[in-house]
Simulated scan of single mutants.
Amino acid sequence: MSALPKIAIIGAGPSGLTLANILQRHQIPFTVYESDASPHARNQGGSLDLHPDGGQLAIREAGLWAAFTAHARPESDVLKVVKNDGEVLWDGNGPDARAVPEAERFAHRPEIDRQALMQLLLEPLAPAAVRWGRKLQEVVPAAGGTYELHFVGGVVETGFELVVGADGAWSRVRQLLTDVKPYYSGISIVELWALNADEKNPWLSQYVGKGSCFSFGEGRTIQAQRVGDGSIRTYACLRKPESFLKDCGIDWTKPETARKEYVERYFDDCGEDLKRMILESEDELIPRTLYMLPVGFRWESRPGVTLLGDAAHLMTPFAGVGVNAAMTDSLDLGRSIVGYTETPHEKSLVDVVKDYDLRLFPHGERFAQKTMNSMNKHFSATGSEELVRRLRAAHGK
């Protein structure tokens, strides 16, 4: 076995923690550094669908399949598609439902809550393996081809032979590889929550259904998603300039009036049920601007430094592939590091990183291009109809 390199993983999101589990399973030491103070410092977001050849494959490699099946919700792999005028074009909860044999429950794209995914990825790790409250300020090249990590507050960690940036959209690690930064995608969204929807709002629970409800149209979409804690999250999205959420004149600090103004100005001609989804999601309101890295983004490979997930190929959520791309990165890099430690003299660590980067670039580009194509279709006048055509073809209807 080769001498084990000193490895730092920056970021305790799905990609960083998946890589950590793969390395731990092969007794390869590492340390994860995360800026959040604890796993519960902030809400982790809604649900994710893990694909058999993407996130699910990485979960299996990490030895966590049993834990995944205990947390995942295969029954939520259901779609409802509605035109902006309210006409239901497809309903996987009703007339378009399909029976799934028990043996195939995980053969498609089961949903798992982000919080549950984080929990199952954290539980197997040694407590000392993840250091919370470490916000990276800078990665600094040091003697002998190693790197220093400088954290906010003056803490410095030294001697790393491999630094893996899994630190998201505004990655500090990426700054060591390129000057390229994310740019505005053209899409702004308002995220709204309805907690305990089954009890507090049975109508909303029934209307959205067991999984997701999508409505696509020219320059706008409305998307709702069921979460495992019983809540429903609705995303009312617009194609607008980057400053829209600041300049539109709506006071987002007053959610009740903000919801009404937002609907009246930008969704008033939508179907009544779609407007009701927005208006009755009363428990939280979060305005967001969406950013992305260029399709085909790549960097000059550098010894001892590489990227995973959003740090490497940030994309919008409109194809549902981001976490699968990220966990596929982790799977590839994890296997590469394991191979390096188990087959001495075949490759240097420099070669391992370079080869991984060269595989990552086309893989990331495919996902990013798919996302760009999906985003453009979703925000087109026939977005809902096009999605239903694809669903009917896939189901032989």
Results as ranks from 00 to 15, higher is better:
F318I: 03
F318D: 13
A319H: 04
A319I: 02
A319K: 08
A319R: 07
A319E: 06
G320C: 07
V321G: 08
G322H: 07
G322D: 04
G322W: 05
G322S: 06
V323T: 05
V323S: 03
A326C: 13
A326H: 10
A326K: 07
M327I: 08
D329Q: 09
D329F: 02
D329M: 01
S330G: 06
L331H: 00
L331F: 01
D332C: 11
L333Y: 01
L333M: 11
G334F: 10
G334P: 03
G334E: 00
G334N: 02
G334R: 01
R335C: 15
S336F: 00
I337L: 15
I337P: 03
I337G: 13
V338A: 08
G339K: 06
Y340D: 10
Y340P: 06
Y340I: 02
Y340M: 03
E342P: 02
T343D: 15
H345R: 11
H345W: 13
E346T: 13
K347F: 08
S348F: 00
L349E: 06
L349M: 05
L349N: 01
L349Y: 01
V350N: 14
V350S: 07
V350K: 12
V352G: 06
V352E: 10
V352I: 08
V353A: 07
K354F: 04
D355A: 14
D355F: 14
Y356D: 01
Y356C: 02
L358Y: 12
L358E: 15
L358F: 09
L358Q: 14
L360K: 04
F361L: 00
F361G: 09
F361T: 01
P362L: 04
P362M: 02
G364T: 04
G364Q: 05
E365M: 13
E365A: 11
E365R: 13
R366C: 05
F367V: 14
A368R: 09
A368K: 09
Q369N: 15
K370P: 04
T371N: 14
T371I: 02
M372N: 14
M372R: 12
N373F: 09
N373C: 05
S374C: 15
M375C: 10
N376E: 15
N376F: 08
K377C: 15
F379M: 14
F379G: 10
S380R: 03
S380W: 09
A381D: 11
A381T: 13
A381G: 06
A381E: 11
T382Y: 07
T382I: 00
G383Y: 02
G383S: 04
S384Y: 07
S384E: 05
E386L: 12
